[in-house]
Design a protein around this nucleic acid. Structure first.
Length: 257
DNA sequence: GTCTTTGTTGACTC
DNA sequence: TGAGTCAACAAAGA
């Protein structure tokens, strides 16, 4: 599920357990380790404590007094807190044992994974990313989209433009702003940019609060998977097509080209 | 068996 | 050089 709101939720999970000594590091599936061995990961973190974690886009950074743990959750990852005696899930890949329980990195598909860096190299990873979507001002959004010749939807999910928006959020934001995802990103006028920014803030704020993109019936997300899905706002049957390899859903009435 | 999936990367093309 | 598109990665459900 991980888009920005989900990762923000994982950040909070980790933030609740900073300052506790890391007693153990268990790599249950080394297939999620990127550029680090199980041995080195364990040696680097054991005995240290996680400090205040930071999120940028869909990346979670967990400094631990020198080493920085870098987590990305791909499409199916999560980070959650469990009592140590709770049975492991089959997709738990890495487990950090703290005093009162365990932090578990769970990921079915292993599309991304766990890295170990230091502050400097962590900055390198983030350098290729645009500003975090939650911190983009209206003026900044206008600057990011201006002169872009690509369509709006794929531009919004391009992490090097804005970090944090995924397929569902981008569709949701376009729908709420009443702008077609097929529009050319650089062609939006001032009032459309304002609407887009408002929609982005609103969708992100609500999703972060719920720690997910809420599939409520007032959201496009709640209707998008139904082949007969109708616009929650006007009832028009939704349109769908693939755009840059991702399914894109919109309302042809609310979001005319 | 087929097709799809909330993400990212590198190869390819214009 | 910049920008956009697509296959590949892996696993599971319909």
């Amino acid at each position: 599920m991980p888009e920005l709101p989900d990762v923000e939720g994982f950040r909070r999970v980790l933030a609740e357990h900073t300052g506790e000594p890391i007693v153990s590091v268990s790599v249950l599936d080394a297939g999620v380790l990127r550029g680090v061995t199980a041995r080195r990961l364990s040696a680097a973190l054991r005995g240290r404590r996680f400090e205040e974690p930071r999120r940028h886009g869909k990346w979670l950074l967990a400094p631990a007094g020198g080493p920085v743990l870098l987590l990305h959750f791909g499409m199916t990852g999560s980070l959650s807190w469990h009592p140590a005696d709770e049975p492991r899930h089959r997709h738990d890949r890495v487990v950090w044992g703290l005093r009162g329980g365990e932090l578990r990195y769970r990921d079915m598909r292993k599309l991304q994974g766990v890295r170990l860096t230091d502050a400097e190299r962590a900055a390198d990873v983030l350098e290729g990313l645009g500003p975090d979507a939650l911190r983009v001002s209206r003026g900044e959004l206008a600057g990011l989209l201006s002169h872009r010749r690509g369509r709006l939807k794929p531009t919004l999910t391009d992490q090097s433009v804005i970090a944090g928006l995924g397929n569902l959020l981008a569709d949701e934001i376009c729908w709420r702003a009443r702008i077609s995802p097929l529009r050319t990103a650089g062609d939006l006028d001032a009032s459309e940019l304002a609407a887009l920014h408002r929609a982005m803030r609103r969708v992100l704020r609500d999703s972060v609060e719920a720690e997910r993109v809420p599939p409520r019936d007032t959201w496009l997300t709640g209707a998008r998977d139904d082949p007969e899905g109708a616009c929650p706002r006007c009832g028009t049957p939704l349109s769908a097509r693939r755009l840059s390899g991702r399914t894109t859903v919109w309302c042809p009435t609310c979001q005319p080209r």
